[in-house]
Design a protein around this nucleic acid. Structure first.
Lengths: 107, 107
DNA sequence: CAGGATCCAGTGCGATACTG
DNA sequence: CAGTATCGCACTGGATCCTG
């Protein structure tokens, strides 16, 4: 059984595909659900998702940031402390994935 | 520039991820949108999406069938004629992707 | 015309190790 | 701690060919 999750980059020339691209990634829904509950740090995600590699979590968070869904707050301390949270755009994504969840119940 | 669209298979242990898996694939949204408009045959999809290979279109249709989103009607003639259409479950998916589309407008 | 079977390039992501 | 670099493997999906 495979755990390969992402399929392929969509054509991205239509809004639905752009939206789908933003959410598609093995840990992105998990990250978004957690961020919907509370702001969190990379370590927090590592603890919550021990199956995921730190590299992937950091990368997928980075993509969410780049897409404007998530924002970082760098506390500029040592040892480093960086907190992630949903942007206002990111908050608008929550009802969308909830609707997906309702549909997913039927699968 | 790449057009790789699908990311990786999600963990599929939660409804949202199951739903996302069903939609994720380079041509699936295109297939679903077309099927929402009219029933269609493989050739029709080939004409509508000349960028896609027949192999991929057939394969992604097959996945949608396996997931219960799309159904086939085989006319048992020669040359072959097979028509694809949305199942009732598939029709329930339409409003979900429309909601995604609304969100995608903001990206 | 539907749809396999092959072959192959590009990508997702896990493991691991390293830095400031 | 956060973040990056490297390596390696599994998967997506394009091209092409073949059959009934």
């Amino acid at each position: 059984m495979s755990t390969y999750s992402r399929k392929t980059k969509l054509k991205a020339d239509c809004p639905m595909e752009r939206a789908l691209n933003v959410m598609t990634g093995k840990w992105k829904l998990a990250l978004l659900c957690e961020l919907n509950r509370r702001n969190a740090r990379l370590v927090d995600f590592e603890k919550k998702n021990p199956e995921a590699s730190k590299r992937t979590l950091a990368q997928q968070l980075g993509e969410l940031v780049k897409d404007g869904i998530v924002q970082k707050k760098d506390f500029q301390v040592y040892p480093k402390k960086v907190e992630y949270s949903l942007t206002s755009l990111g908050k608008e994504l929550i009802p969308v994935i909830q609707k997906m969840g309702e549909f997913g119940e039927k699968l």
